[in-house]
Design a protein around this nucleic acid. Structure first.
Length: 207
DNA sequence: CCCTGATTCGC
DNA sequence: GCGAATCAGG
């Protein structure tokens, strides 16, 4: 295999998207991650760099996803309490916005008759942390990730698959992320981002 | 052990 | 230029 224009393009694209060398190598095929890394260096795009000559501290591009309304087609049912997908606002104060199911999304998922409605009122729901103060980037990537999730079942999880739960466990609409985990951690890159927050203004909730 | 990117150096 | 081997780290 040689580095054809096309392959280099793919490399550049994926690399800028933050894909790992191994993933890129897998995608391209015929090359190892070493080859990819080597090429990356030779191309001089190992670090942030747009090729403008002047060293601009441009951040790693990152897939800028303004907002994707598609959250999750939920049936208009007495769904369990769930905070709004997120309100990524640069607000310093946590703003509890109890937005419940306000998705102007054309639901197309017919509710299965044999399900629903049997949600224990307790608190059996997994964290499903739709935090209040998660970095916008993390959230953006999480939403992206959830669309690329491998949708593994509990039995399919391994020590190397992201164990982030997605969906409502009380329905068929539930699965695990399943993407390759970060390293040692139980979640993939994106989910690690929201799971392990630096510890920002973790103001204790008063009750 | 799994993975990551960085570097070296014979080819 | 290429990339396996190696290094350094998580």
């Amino acid at each position: 295999m040689s580095w054809t224009e096309e392959r280099v393009e793919t490399l550049k694209k994926m690399w800028s998207e933050g894909q790992s060398a191994s993933q890129i190598a897998k995608e391209l095929g015929g090359v190892t991650r070493n080859a990819v890394i080597g090429k990356v260096h030779r191309l001089g795009l190992s670090n942030r760099n747009g090729g403008g000559g002047t060293a601009e501290k441009a951040k790693p591009a990152e897939v800028e996803v303004p907002e994707k309304p598609a959250v999750k087609a939920e049936a208009p049912r007495p769904k369990p309490v769930r905070e709004a997908p997120v309100a990524a606002e640069p607000v310093e104060e946590a703003k509890p916005e109890p937005v419940v199911a306000a998705d102007p999304e054309p639901v197309e998922a017919p509710v299965s008759p044999a399900r629903r409605q049997i949600i224990p009122a307790g608190q059996p729901l997994p964290p499903q942390p739709s935090a209040n103060e998660i970095s916008p980037e993390a959230l953006a990537s999480v939403r992206e990730i959830e669309k690329k999730a491998r949708r593994l079942t509990l039995m399919e999880l391994t020590e190397r698959t992201c164990k982030w739960p997605i969906g409502d466990p009380a329905t068929e609409d539930f699965w695990f992320c399943g993407l390759p985990v970060q390293a040692g951690k139980p979640y993939c890159e994106a989910h690690v981002g929201v799971a392990f927050q630096p510890m920002s203004s973790r103001r204790d909730r008063r009750r």
